[in-house]
């Protein structure tokens, strides 16, 4: 998906010059990549509506000076929310990395709700990536589990990627349902040994 060129330039400069802390770089990298398709669709939809309305109504034409900024707010708010949630997750990452225990998928059960865990496995399915709230089905040699992420990840994770996911065990539907992982961090692993 295309992003504002200025943002691309800024991220490239940060990367080339090596300035900014690791968290800044991660945040910039994820902001560069992710503007939800839904946010774009909403923006496009209302732009079309506004254009059509302004053609047929002189009242609307006179209000364009107010309506056009409002239209852009529809893009700015999701980006800002995305940045804020990503920032929160970036703060949580080191905490979870320190506390999480590496477990096999089969050992994760409903009695472990609330425990931070780390799993390594192959991504079998990716859902809802277009909403910036991706859900992965990750499998290791012992089984498979859903890994839900409530923000966009710092890396583009695709099917068949070997990844390490860190997060907390939660119920699928808050108070009931099978255990799933509320993911704080998901990273591609270089290694390719049998999982």
């Amino acid at each position: 998906m295309a992003c504002p060129e200025s943002l691309c330039d800024l991220v490239t400069k940060i990367e080339i010059l090596g300035i900014g802390c690791a968290k800044c770089k991660r945040l910039f990298r994820s902001a560069k990549r992710k503007i939800s398709i839904v946010a774009i669709a909403v923006f496009v939809f209302f732009t079309i509506i506004l254009l059509m309305a302004s053609v047929f109504s002189s009242k609307i034409q006179s209000q364009l000076i107010l309506l056009i900024p409002v239209l852009f707010i529809l893009l700015v708010i999701p980006v800002a929310l995305n940045y804020m949630s990503r920032s929160q997750y970036a703060d949580l990452e080191p905490v979870y990395e320190a506390e999480a225990k590496t477990v096999r998928v089969k050992l994760i059960n409903e009695n472990m709700i609330g425990k931070p865990v780390r799993i390594e496995g192959v991504v079998e399915q990716v859902y809802f990536q277009f909403l910036n709230r991706p859900q992965y089905l990750i499998a290791d040699r012992s089984g498979e589990i859903s890994v839900k992420m409530f923000t966009n990840p710092t890396e583009d994770i695709k099917v068949n990627d070997v990844v390490e996911a860190i997060g907390k065990v939660i119920h699928r539907y808050i108070v009931s349902g099978d255990p799933v992982i509320n993911c704080v961090s998901i990273k591609k692993l270089k290694k390719t040994e049998d999982l």
Partner: peptide, 9 residues
């Protein structure tokens, strides 16, 4: 068993 299942390894 209980401690293991609860993740208190």
């Amino acid at each position: 068993f209980v401690r293991f299942a609860q993740g208190d390894f």
